[in-house]
């Protein structure tokens, strides 16, 4: 199974080495800024993004791969704006120049949101992301969000997605060996066959969950505080970048 956990691209650039908390904060801050951005901010932020991509030694192909899943949706939004925005008519029937401008701006905002998050995952190991997430959620503990337990659950998800995919393949093969054809029949027949995949998958997952829970308790897991093998330490460059980010976001929001 070709499933890859995350899109991490190994490297040792400044972006790779930044504290995951700083990177998570960066994506949050920049995403908020860009949400109501005008053309000026969009251009400024695009230049920033290009700079980060260069420093992190990521290629354009990497970035395109991240956007691809949502291309159809983006195209739809772009076209709706292009054709349904009132304004000066353009050579294309129904389309307006205002529509073109709005379509490009809005679509680019969304592409940007996807790209900034993609750069985060491409330059940060999943386990570092979880550590960063756990630290970022700690201030919410008084609100009843147990950061330690959330981190453990996220790591269980990442641990078991590939295993469940392997299992899905096995169930599928077993059923095809018994003559099930997943590409024939009417809709109802296909739906039935999907149920015959999903039911064993869930049934096994329930038994699995029981055993996983027991295994965790057997290894002394209890809800609440625990320590971590991985330590996060902010370096001077982390602080400098964070300060720069806050200033830039402030400037961006000021322009709203």
């Amino acid at each position: 199974m070709g499933y890859k956990l995350g899109q991490y691209i190994p490297g040792s650039s400044l972006v790779h080495r930044l504290d995951p908390r700083v990177k998570i904060a960066a994506v949050m801050l920049v995403s908020i800024t860009v949400l109501r951005a005008d053309a000026f901010i969009v251009v400024a932020v695009t230049i920033l993004l290009a700079g980060i991509t260069f420093i992190a030694r990521l290629s354009l192909a990497h970035l395109l791969r991240a956007v691809r899943p949502l291309v159809i949706f983006f195209a739809l939004i772009f076209l709706v704006h292009l054709f349904f925005t009132p304004g000066a008519p353009s050579p294309l029937p129904l389309a307006t120049y205002e529509g073109l401008y709005r379509g490009v701006l809005l679509t680019w905002r969304f592409v940007f949101l996807i790209l900034s998050a993609a750069i985060l995952t491409m330059t940060t190991l999943p386990s570092e992301l979880i550590s960063g997430l756990e630290r970022c959620l700690r201030p919410l503990r008084p609100l009843g969000i147990p950061s330690h337990d959330v981190a453990v659950m996220v790591s269980i998800v990442l641990r078991f997605v590939p295993t469940l995919l392997q299992e899905l393949d096995q169930i599928k093969e077993a059923q095809m060996a018994r003559g099930a054809d997943f590409k024939a029949g009417n809709l109802l027949a296909r739906m039935k066959r999907v149920s015959s995949l999903v039911i064993p998958l869930i049934r096994n997952s329930i038994l699995r969950a029981e055993e996983v829970a027991m295994g965790m308790e057997g290894r002394g897991y209890h809800r609440g505080p625990r320590t971590y093998m991985r330590e996060l330490r902010m370096t001077p460059s982390d602080y400098i970048i964070l300060a720069l980010l806050v200033i830039l976001t402030g400037l961006g929001v000021y322009r709203w």
């Binding site: 999943p126 979880i130 990442l158 641990r159 295994g215 965790m216 290894r219 002394g220 625990r226 093998m229």
Partner: peptide, 20 residues
């Protein structure tokens, strides 16, 4: 079903982490 870490070393660390 006894392995809960994303990598081998993180899994082995799980118990000692529970011991704080």
């Amino acid at each position: 079903n006894q392995i809960v870490g994303m990598t081998v070393e993180e899994d082995v660390a799980f118990g000692p982490e529970n011991l704080r």
